[in-house]
């Protein structure tokens, strides 16, 4: 079972590399280099915060873009192009396939985030903010954990919906996921039972991605405590396990026309 999952994950990573998904890194490197070289004079002594903010925000956006657009095509493209026909004629379970595809994209995102993180750190070293260059890695890890959840959501939608609709729905979940905690607090203040019920439902059903927002704090030199990162990692693991379990249940029943 693990052998099959590993083989599928390996091939998914190879597909991302050969389909030039990692080319976004070139754009990112140019962006971060431009920030480091040109923004120094414009930000009047705050270039370390600016580079950190822009670097980590761009990392998140690039990552979300890949997680959504590659994630929604992970299953649908295989069905559409009928590559699944030969895969499922091998002794491969549908669950193994889903987990393998998911892990393959997670590895792609890991490489992506790691290279971008090195880029941000080098840019910070270049502008003389060496202490930030090391401390941003806690925030980078949180960004990566958030991306694994976005990938899980994308693969869930792609198991039963079209790529375009899946991308839209995943993007909405990502946006709502960042505001679900605030919306719940707002509903508590309104005193309406209906609002409390609705936003409570959203809070518990949608991923709470506010756990992973640490960019602004990281720009100020703050480092997330290990216990905080551990809790965020545990939340991501549990949420992803639920997402993958639902995806597998849906995909196991699907006819591959």
């Amino acid at each position: 079972m693990l052998r099959n999952i590993f083989a599928i994950a390996r091939n998914t990573f190879r597909e991302a590399v050969r389909d030039r998904v990692l080319y976004n890194l070139v754009v990112f490197v140019l962006l971060i280099t431009g920030c480091a070289v040109f923004l120094g004079d414009l930000t009047a002594g705050n270039e370390d915060r600016t580079v950190t903010n822009i670097g980590l925000s761009a990392m998140l956006l690039f990552g979300v873009f890949i997680a959504i657009f590659v994630g929604v095509s992970l299953v649908s493209k295989e069905i559409e192009k009928r590559t699944l026909y030969t895969i499922f004629s091998k002794p491969i379970g549908r669950g193994e396939f889903i987990v393998g595809k998911y892990l393959g994209l997670c590895v792609t995102l890991l490489v992506n985030v790691a290279v971008m993180g090195i880029g941000v750190s080098l840019a910070l070293v270049y502008i003389g903010a060496s202490s930030l260059a090391a401390s941003v890695w806690g925030a980078i890890l949180l960004i990566y954990l958030e991306l694994t959840i976005v990938t899980g959501v994308a693969i869930l939608f792609s198991s039963f919906s079209t790529p375009a609709l899946s991308a839209l729905l995943t993007f909405l979940v990502w946006v709502i996921g960042h505001f679900s905690a605030s919306l719940r607090d707002l509903a508590e203040g309104l005193g309406s039972d209906a609002a409390r019920w609705l936003f409570g439902f959203i809070y518990y059903v949608f991923p709470n991605l506010s756990h992973y927002e640490f960019v602004t704090l990281a720009a100020r030199g703050e480092v997330p405590p290990v216990s905080y990162i551990g809790g965020a990692a545990l939340y991501a693991i549990v949420f992803n396990a639920i997402l993958l379990a639902i995806t597998i249940v849906i995909f196991r029943r699907r006819n591959l026309k």
Partner: peptide
């Protein structure tokens, strides 16, 4: 062993 009609494989391989 199975070979589908008009087989389509991962074309990047």
């Amino acid at each position: 062993g199975y070979c589908p009609e008009n087989p389509y494989f991962y074309d990047y391989l």
